[in-house]
Amino acid sequence: MHERWDDQLPFYVTGALPPATHAAVAQHLRECVACAAQVAEWQQLAAWHQSHVAGRMGALPPLSPLVRASLHRPPTLRELLASTLQLVWAQRNVLRPLLPGIVGVLLVGLAASLGLMNAERVALPLVALVPIVAALPIAFLHSRELEPAFEIVSATPSAPGALLLARLTFVLTLVSSVTLPGSFAVSAAQGSSFGPLVAAWLGPLLLLSALATVLALRWRSGVAVGVVLAGWLGVIGLLWLELNGYPLLALPLHALLQPHAWLFLSQLLAAGLLWWLAWRELPHLSTERVY
C-alpha cells in the first residue's frame, strides 16, 4: 500500500508535486504513520543536503566582460567548426556499447566478400550487411530509450537538426572508415572495380539510413528498427532467391550488386527526399523525441 506513495514522498518534501498529488499525499500522511516517518527522514536528508550545498555558495562572480563582448558577436568560423566537431565526436558516447558489434559485422562482411570466388556476387555480403549496420544505430540514436548512453549529448543545447546531422555524420563516417578501405582491399584482391563496389553498398546505406531517420522521428525508434530490418531482410532474401534461380519479382534485384549510375543516383535522390521529409518533421517534434 505504501509503495503507491513511496516515490512521491521526496517530492512532497520539496514541494515539487502537482497540487492535486500534493494534497493526496498530505491526506494519506494524516492516516499513515509509516509514511509520515519516511517524510521525516526525507526532510532530514533535504536539510542535510541543503546545508551541504549551501557551503559551496560564495559571492557570485560578475558576468565576465568577455561574455558581454561576445553577446552581439556571431560565433567565429573556428568556434562553429569546433562546436560542430565536438557535437559529432560526442556521438561516440551514445554508440559506445554498439561500436564493437558494428565494426565486427562490417569485418565479417568484408571477410565474406574477400572469400567469395564469384566475381559477380562479390558485393553481396557488403550490400546485405553495410546498409543495415548503419541504419539500425541511426534508428536507435533517435530514441530516448538508450538514456544512460545519452550522458553527454543529451544536455547539448543544440538545434535538433544539428543533432540529427551530427548523428548521421558520426555513423556514416564510422561505417565508411571501415568499409571504404575494406572495399579497396576486396576490389584489389578480387580484381573487381572499386567504384561500383562502393556504389553497391553506399546507395542502399544512404537510403536505408534516411528511411530509418524518418520512421524514428515520425513514429518511434522501435518502428524504425522493425520496418528497416524486415524490409532489408526481405530485399536481401528476394535477391538471394533470384541469384539462385528463383526470381519472385519482375524487378531484376541483382542490379543492386553492380549498380548503374542511374540506380545509384535514384538511391541518392530517394535518400535526399527522405532527409528532406525528416527535416520538415523537426519543428513539429518535441525535443524529448530527438534527444
Binding site: D7, P10, V13, A16, H49
Partner: peptide, 22 residues
C-alpha cells in the same frame, strides 16, 4: 540527483531531463 531534487528543487521528471535518465 540529491542535489537536483533537494537543493535546486527540481521535480522528478525535471531531474530526469537534466540527468537524461528515466
Amino acid at each position: 540527483t540529491l542535489e537536483l531534487i533537494f537543493f535546486h528543487g527540481l521535480s522528478g521528471p525535471e531531474a530526469a531531463q537534466v540527468q537524461k535518465v528515466a
